[in-house]
């Protein structure tokens, strides 16, 4: 279902040190990317509580992006390695629960990868447009 006028809403949980700075760089470098992301800045991908990812998804966000430093680069040593396991577990649970795990993306984007941040958002918007709106957006009984 592809609706031309549909503009997906993405909630993005970004780590302060890498992906948020990468997003900032994309902005200051005037790299164009779609305006569909609502960014929430956290200190580390390891501090993303999966419950908030679920909250965003169940209340109708079309996609949730979790962004952190590349493995080996986490400012708190291992936050992103733990986040990787947590998000893998979360996505499996979301899938088993009959929801769409493909709406949850985990991506490593460094502070210098402004272009990669723009590419990730562009890809995600494209993929979500293909999927159409999150059906849970209209679902009151959740």
């Amino acid at each position: 279902m592809s609706d031309e006028s549909f503009e997906p809403k993405i909630v993005a949980f970004l780590c302060n040190w890498c992906t948020y700075t990468g997003a900032d760089l994309a902005g200051t470098s005037r790299i164009q990317y779609p305006p569909n992301v609502r960014i929430i800045r956290l200190m580390c991908s390891g501090s993303v509580d999966p419950t908030y990812v679920l909250k965003a998804l169940l209340d109708g966000a079309d996609g949730v992006l979790i962004g952190g430093c590349h493995p080996g680069d986490c400012h708190y040593q291992s936050g992103n390695y733990k986040a990787r396991r947590r998000i893998i577990a979360l996505k499996e649970i979301v899938k088993q629960a009959g929801l769409d795990e493909e709406r949850v993306w985990l991506r490593w984007v460094s502070a210098s990868e402004g272009q990669r941040f723009a590419d990730v958002v562009t890809q995600m918007v494209g993929a979500l447009k293909e999927k159409g709106p999150n059906p849970l957006r209209q679902e009151w009984a959740v």
Binding site: H70, K82, I87, W108
Partner: peptide
């Protein structure tokens, strides 16, 4: 965690 697991995830 292990550093060498799921290395493609996120990349």
């Amino acid at each position: 965690f292990r550093e060498d697991e799921w290395t493609g995830v996120g990349e």
